[in-house]
């Protein structure tokens, strides 16, 4: 119904989760690093997405308030970058590289295998809230093509045959090295997962 105008005047019925005080505190801790509060935008969105799983309308408003900006400025940034989700994600996000090297080495087949196994397409989440899937341009690991990222963890030279094992592995997103929690959610914050 392309002749009908979408209503943007009214707020959505469900604005989603907001940011806790601990998350806000964590965001404020970035302020001394920059000349302006606005520069904390990307770190703030990273921390928020870690904490609640995606960037909800409510979270955008909270961040706008923290950074002293109109909420539209936050929406502008959120929609520009592909990393931020504006709807809930699953516990594990499978990110498949679709750029040239990976494609030449079989990323298509991998993508197809994931889509059929999980029954979801780009930017969708399985009904049980376990997995989400997305494609991304070159992940700068072309020597290990085709690449698949599971949350933070990069899996290299992934073949469709390895997929079952990888999906079953609970630790498929655990990093082998010590982590910095600078951009993470504050301890104890559990992201809201699934739909």
């Amino acid at each position: 119904m392309s002749w009908q105008a979408i209503d943007r005047k009214s707020a959505p019925a469900d604005e989603g989760p907001g940011l806790s005080d601990a998350v806000k505190e964590k965001i404020r801790a970035f302020f001394p690093r920059y000349e302006t509060k606005r520069a904390v935008m990307l770190p703030a969105l990273h921390v928020a997405q870690e904490a609640i799983g995606y960037i909800s309308v409510r979270a955008m408003k909270d961040i706008a308030e923290l950074l002293e900006l109109p909420p539209s400025a936050v929406m502008d940034v959120v929609t520009f970058y592909t990393h931020y989700w504006t709807h809930p994600r699953g516990e594990k996000v499978l990110m498949v590289c679709r750029s040239l090297s990976c494609q030449l080495m079989g990323a298509d087949k991998l993508q197809h295998a994931i889509e059929t196994k999980l029954g979801i397409k780009d930017h969708e989440t399985t009904p049980d809230g376990k997995f989400s899937f997305m494609t991304e341009e070159c992940l700068a690991a072309c020597d290990h093509a085709p690449c698949l990222m599971v949350n933070e963890r990069m899996h290299k030279r992934v073949t469709p045959e390895q997929l079952d094992k990888l999906l079953a592995d609970a630790d498929s997103d655990k990093l082998p090295m010590p982590r910095s929690d600078l951009y993470d959610a504050p301890h104890g914050e559990k992201p809201a997962r699934g739909h």
């Binding site: 943007r8 005047k9 009214s10 707020a11 959505p12 309308v57 955008m60 109109p70 909420p71 539209s72 929406m75 502008d76 929609t79 520009f80």
Partner: peptide
């Protein structure tokens, strides 16, 4: 909002 040829003008909902 958005980028590339999908860029469009918008207001924050509400």
């Amino acid at each position: 909002i958005n980028r590339g040829h999908r860029a469009e003008i918008d207001v924050f909902p509400g």
